[in-house]
Design a protein around this nucleic acid. Structure first.
Lengths: 361, 361
DNA sequence: CTGTTAGCGCCTTCAG
DNA sequence: CTGAAGGCGCTAACAG
């Protein structure tokens, strides 16, 4: 019986059964290209993958006929055969948060250099979603993953690693094992820089509005603040620390609480810019002038910091850079190259603007 | 010759060649599960894919042994065999723009219901990138795609459609053929609402700072503004329309230009919130009070609108909803269900805050 | 309800 | 430098 060839060249083929193609005939396969170019599929594959061991002539022929037939490689097939998908899993807490998107954007540009794309999943910081993500996306569907602020326990991460999918964690909530590369922002020293700045301006009572206590960012920034205060011989009475949740409202709320103290702070350090804006608006509605009556510092150096009036003194984090670096490390892992530093902490930068100044008298 | 079974059950198998498995032995295949559960691969496949025609007993057995062996389906293989990847391509101009991320977030939640993920690509509004995206991501790698504000010509989109990959376009720059579903924001009527609002407040000279002229948003909003002004019998002299680029700075710049006119406007409508904030800061530095001396309106109802002081009168767009709807339509397309409306325009909502008021006298 | 079997399209040794 | 051929792991007829 003759094989039913998709291309209608009269070439006869040995086959015990009728070949019934169900695929879309508009989508040429590597075999058709090979056939038309008069070479073997292996050669076509080599050309398409840029292998060097092909004569210039054949390469050109193949490329030409591939182009003519508008050939596009079927990535599923390639992935199945090669074991590489060209896809990276990316778990991010929230998609609509400027903060995380900076990291994602940084990772995206880096990924492009590796000719890869990423598959995103918003975890909303929910454990269940992350687990499902890890168990679905990572296994087989992607070559590796980047987890931004995962809520996984070290144990879960470790078991994940055992599965064989390389991944790197950005800002882990808890210290991971040494075998799991980690990229973090220097929350502690960033908070230190801000606090120091405030102290140098002459502030003695500095209140803070923290973020959600489950996040590393909150914990570490609080640590940096505390340490710096103590070091300067300044007390940190509990009433000076109020808990926020990174949203603007909580900043406003926290500020009111702080300013209602019998001995209110002369400066407030909010753990992110949004909350700092909240602090600002509370201040304003209380009739206080910033920075004369109250200095306000934020964190992140996001849009809010430059939109607000006065513009905020804050800490700039290398968010994009973190994304970039993570991808770089991830690819070292994937390509099994040695990874020198598995514990990277990128430094932050104090940005002094108009919301801080010496305390009024 | 005996097959080398990965599982060390002593079951002998007929095979003319030694089976040499190169895959990771920790990753069980459907065959091993079938073997261990004492059923055929087909049955396992059915169970795993939730097909109804399996007895409850076998289903349970299979599920149990799958769980025990920590089986995870190889998505590449499944994709190759079934022709469906469970992935959706998503082209978005910028990853770090609140505006687009809202859409993406909306699409993401909707996708989850379809148990799919998406592969993102930032186009940076560069034509080349989009083309590469379309030609790489879409063919075979994804089941469909959502293009946000693509710069493609109708011709390119049409040829894409011919390729057979279903897709929907959000806010197309140019009208597409009827066979390409489209989801848009009602830019025109949003601008109309704002303009009307300003007119009703008593403004007669209303200036605008537009966005980049290549974007639909700019063109349509300008159209809405113009039409409404004319309808109210108000002139729109060219000097009242200054071009911005959606960035804060251009708003500030535009405002200075507008306010320097011999007969300056009493209200300025900036085509997005960021620019409105720019207008605000220009106003402030000129010593004007908003809204007494100048009314300012924005567009988008983003973070900037509520951070700024005074908070901005603006137009809220159903960004998340647009993402959601797009996904819904896309899946209808993918599942070849009839798509009733292929030209969807979601309505916007005027949000009046403190930056607009009656003109001073 | 269940098993058999033929591919899906490509990659990759292994021979020449 | 090139060709032949065996899978990769899974799905989907088709036949019981």
């Amino acid at each position: 019986m003759k094989a039913v060839s998709v291309m209608d060249s009269g070439q006869s083929q040995q086959s015990t059964r009728t070949v019934q193609r169900r695929g879309d005939p508009r989508k040429p396969t590597i075999r058709q290209i090979a056939h038309e170019a008069g070479v073997s599929v292996a050669t076509v594959s080599r050309v398409l993958n840029g292998h060097p061991d092909v004569s210039e002539l054949t390469r050109e022929t193949v490329l030409k006929t591939a182009r003519q037939n508008a050939y596009v490689r079927n990535s599923s097939a390639a992935a199945l055969a090669s074991g590489r998908t060209g896809l990276i899993g990316l778990a991010v807490p929230f998609l609509n948060a400027e903060y995380f998107m900076q990291m994602v954007a940084g990772a995206a540009t880096a990924l492009e250099e590796h000719d890869a794309r990423f598959v995103v999943s918003a975890t909303e910081h929910e454990h269940a979603r992350e687990v499902s993500l890890l168990h679905r996306i990572m296994h087989g569907a992607t070559d590796g993953a980047i987890l931004i602020e995962p809520s996984e326990s070290p144990g879960e991460l470790a078991s994940l690693r055992n599965w064989g999918v390389p991944f790197v964690v950005i800002d882990p909530a808890q210290p991971t094992g040494d075998d799991i590369p980690t990229v973090s922002a220097a929350h502690w020293s960033g908070a230190r820089a801000i606090t120091q700045h405030l102290i140098e301006l002459g502030h003695r009572r500095i209140g803070v509005v923290t973020g959600r206590p489950e996040w590393v960012a909150s914990v570490d920034r609080l640590g940096g603040y505390r340490a710096t205060m103590l070091e300067a011989g300044l007390a940190v009475p509990p009433e000076l620390v109020v808990e926020g949740n990174f949203e603007m409202d909580s900043g406003e709320h926290g500020a009111r609480q702080l300013l209602a103290l019998e001995c209110p702070p002369t400066a407030i350090f909010a753990f992110n810019d949004n909350m700092a804006v909240g602090v600002l608006s509370a201040t304003r509605s209380l009739g206080l002038v910033v920075p004369r009556d109250l200095s306000i510092a934020g964190y992140d150096d996001g849009l809010a910091a430059i939109i607000s009036a006065p513009q905020l003194t804050t800490v700039k984090q290398p968010l994009r850079e973190m994304g970039r670096v993570s991808v770089d490390i991830l690819y070292r892992l994937i390509e099994k190259q040695p990874v020198e530093a598995t514990r990277i902490e990128l430094s932050t930068k104090l940005v002094v603007r108009d919301s801080t100044g010496p305390p009024g008298q």
